[in-house]
Design a protein around this nucleic acid. Sequence first.
RNA 1: GGCGGCGUAGCCAAGUGGUAAGGCCGAGGUCUGCAAAACCUCUACCCCCAGUUCGAAUCUGGGCGCCGCCUCCA
Length: 449
Amino acid sequence: MSLQLTNTFSGKKEKFVSLVPNLVRFYLCGVTVYDYCHLGHARAYVSFDMVRRYLMHRGYDVKFVQNFTDIDDKIIKRAHEAGQDYQALSKQFIEAYHEDIDRLFVLPATLYTNATDYIVQMQDMIEGLIASGHAYIAGGDVCFSVENFKEYGKLSKKVLDDLISNMRVESSDAKRSPADFVLWKAAKPDEPFWESPWGKGRPGWHIECSAMAMDALGETIDIHAGGEDLMFPHHENEIAQSESFTGKRFAKYWMHNGFVTINHEKMSKSLHNFIRIRDVLEKVDGESLRFYLLRVQYRNPLHFSEPGLKESQQSLARLREAVITHDRSETPNFPEAITHLKEKFYAAMDDDFNAAEAIGVLFEMLRVVNTTSQGAHVLYELGQVLGLFNDLDKTESVSDEIEALIEARQQARASKNFAESDRLRDELRDVHGVVLEDGAGGVRWKRVG
RNA sequence: GGCGGCGUAGCCAAGUGGUAAGGCCGAGGUCUGCAAAACCUCUACCCCCAGUUCGAAUCUGGGCGCCGCCUCCA
C-alpha cells in the first residue's frame, strides 16, 4: 500500500514519492501577523500538522518550514492606528500565534522564517529576475511580468487573458499588464523601508515565500501547502517567480486545505465573521478542538458549529477514557480485530490523509478495546499519530471537601443507606461538577464541564 | 462571465463502479441497590431527471440548490 495525496497542481491523487528518499521538504505558508488567529488558521495548521505527523510516522524525516509575514500593508496600517512600531505589533502576534497553536498540539516547525530576516535573499532574487527580463522597474516599484512566464495560471487553472479582462485597469498604475504583481514596493513617507538598488522600499508579499522556501529547503521542494485561498494569486505567483528564477520546478506537490465556514460563508478576516482560537478555547480544550477539525477530510469545507464542537469533545472523551482505563502496555497477544483495524487505519491515512475516516476506525477499535480490554496500546499509538491522547497521565485532584464528600458517600453506600448516598452523589454532580462511577475496582470520579 | 467544489439518516460526516464507515442525539435491552460508564440491538428510497453498465451514492448528460477563487485573506 502506498501513500497517495491530492496534488492540487494536477487536481488528482498521486502516489507520494519524495525527491530524496526518506526526506520530505515541506513548506507551509504561515500567517500575516497583524491579528489573532481564527479557526480558519487553526484548521490549516492542524491539518498540515496531521499530514506532517503521518509522514514522520511513515519514516520520513520531515523538514518543516513555516513563515511569518511580518511586514505588509496591513501590519503597517494596524501599527500606525495603534501608535505602535510595526515590529512590536508583528512580534506580539507571532507570540499570540504560538500561544494559540501550541494549545492545539501542533508540533513546532523545524524552522520558522520571518520575512524581514530574508530581505537580502529576496533582493537577490529580484535582481536575478530583472536581469533575465522577468521583472521590470516601474517607478520605485519592481514588478514581475506575467506575460513572460508562459505557464502562468497552471496551478490555479486560470487563463491569463481571462484574468486580465476581469481586472480593472487603473490609469495611474505603472504595471505593464494588470496581472503583473509587485516584487518590491516603494516606501511612502513614514513607512518602514529597506535600502535597495531600486530605492527605499519593502518586499511584496509573494516573493518572501519563494526566497525563504528556497533558502531553507532548496530550489525544488517536495510539498508546498496552505489554505485554498492562497492558491491564487499567492501560490501562482510563487511558481511564476521561482521557476522563472531557477528554471526548475518549484514544488513537486501542492496541497490546499478547505475553508472553515460559518453560516455557510467562508470565515475570513475580511468578512469579519471569524472566531478566534483563543475564544473557542475558553469553551473547549485544545485537543477537542483539534479532534473536531480533524473529523472532516482536510480538503472539504468544514461548517463550524458550537454544538458540533461539543459533540466532538464528548466523543473524544470516550476514546480517551478507553486509553486511560485499559492497560496500555504492549502485549504480545491481542485480538485479530485490532490488527485488522490497524491496517484499516493506515489504508485511510494512506488515501490522502483521510483522518476523518481514520477516526472512524478508531471508534471501531474502541469497541474492541472496551469489550476485550486488549489492544489499548494500539489505539493509543494510532491516536497519537493524529496528535491525540495528549496529557493522559495528568492527574487531576479534587479539594479536601470533595474528597470528604466522596468518602461520606462511600460509607453511606456501604451501609446501604442509598437515599443518603444518592443525595451525596447528586450534590457532587450538581454543586461540584464531579460525576461518580461505581465500577468493579471501586468508585471513580470525573469532572464534567 | 471564467475556473473549481459541494448536496449522503434528526444533526455532523466517510465512502468515487460491487450493493451505504463512524460520531452525536433518540428508542429498546444487558450490567448496576439505583445510576453512570461500557456493551448489544434498532433508525438512509445517498437533491431531482435521463443515460452507460450484469451492477451507480460513485461514471456521463441535463436540471435545482449552495459555496469558493478570479482583490488582502489559512
